[in-house]
Design a protein around this nucleic acid. Structure first.
Lengths: 213, 213
DNA sequence: GCACCAAAGTAGACATTGACAACTTAGGTA
DNA sequence: TACCTAAGTTGTCAATGTCTACTTTGGTGC
């Protein structure tokens, strides 16, 4: 992969335009697709458009994505991967207390979601097709950082004991739901951060251990 | 409207098939669209298909829905209306306590959402187009029952005082988010009811008034 | 009772798209 | 060096959304 990149950098633009094999078509298509998705939404995303933009023939994408849905699935998968990394970055090297880190992670999630509305739509899309386990796994890895924070909370008895994945799902669902409402027009962007922080605070209170009197 | 229905019932099938003006085309298209949406998903929804199914020419839908998106918007709007009615029905004539009614309303919401995955997708769709205020209003009316329950909770001091719409949004977002995870394949349908009930219980604890010692 | 008119439906056309088949190029390997 | 296969190309097809021009109808004013 990296050799390809170096090779590519050594070529003139002429060569690039002329050469028969693109060499990184799959990656190029994904990047073009993400841009198109961001700028014009899912409905306007066309394989032929992407092929034109990247400079290959209209049928070339078929080698990498036999059907349009395959591209969308791949986009959703990398979306989850990037989301997970975004959340992790938000709480990396933070010595804040647990509540602050959960809040930080949630706000980072919400921002990612509202900055990439069409991508989030793909990630949340209902599947009628046979399940694609890769997407599911990527999604689970995306909210793994939240689960880890919850485990940490349980360890220091700041949170109730109980099935971590379920508690994590509730938090994930809440933040995701709020972001959707922003993308939806049901909630103003300006209010998102505050609302997410409120929701997290409420979540923490609700998930706190019951005091034994 | 009702006269039209009666008139229609008085006609033989022959007459129905022959007559130039369908008479209730908009409604018929919406119903066909909902069925198609449920059975084959959003990607397979085609205006020409619907026209064929209803028995009109391929351009007829254009009179009622100039663009495909207009039909989708209309579907989302009635979806919200039906959702609101479903939630209301779930808690009508119930003498249970507040927590039980909130739980009941939430479970009803979640069931509606998972029984109509493609419709929910439409309702949650991000809008790049200029906002359609009717959908927003329909959506707000859909979760009005939740807001009312929260107001009731505040009145009896079972819930913290505070902006009801924000607290309602948090609850709405949570349930919506959990339903999406089911439609998504991230959460098993069997676990939905229990998880929603857990989430509501946690929500109620988190939104309870802080005890002044 | 009749002419007319706007609403609602029809027919035909067009560009675009996803999908498929058959052919070509070129890079790595026996 | 020959070849084989992955990766691109061209050509084609049916389906779709959208547009324009034409037709049918039911209701309204006179």
């Amino acid at each position: 992969m990296s050799t390809l990149v170096l090779y590519r950098c050594a070529m003139t633009r002429q060569d690039e335009q002329r050469r028969y094999h693109h060499g990184e078509l799959r990656q190029a298509l994904m990047e073009a697709a993400e841009r198109s998705l961001r700028e014009r939404g899912l409905a306007q995303l066309s394989l032929r458009d992407l092929a034109r933009e990247v400079g290959v023939s209209h049928a070339a994408p078929r080698r990498h994505f036999p059907e349009r849905q395959d591209l969308l699935d791949a986009l959703a998968e990398t979306g989850f991967t990037r989301l997970g990394a975004t959340i992790r970055d938000a709480i990396a090297d933070s010595d804040e207390d647990l509540a602050a880190r959960i809040s930080r992670a949630s706000v980072a999630f919400a921002r990612f979601a509202t900055e990439n509305p069409a991508l989030l739509e793909l990630m949340n899309a209902a599947k009628h097709e046979p399940d694609t386990p890769q997407i599911t796994r990527a999604a689970e890895e995306a909210f793994a950082p939240l689960v880890e924070l919850i485990e940490e909370g349980q360890a220091i008895h700041a949170l109730q004991a109980g099935p971590v994945d379920e508690i994590g799902m509730i938090l994930y669902a809440t933040v995701n739901g709020l972001a959707i409402m922003v993308n939806n027009g049901l909630l103003d962007t300006d209010r998102l951060d505050a609302l997410v922080e409120d929701a997290v605070a409420q979540f923490l209170r609700g998930a706190a251990p019951v005091l034994s009197s």
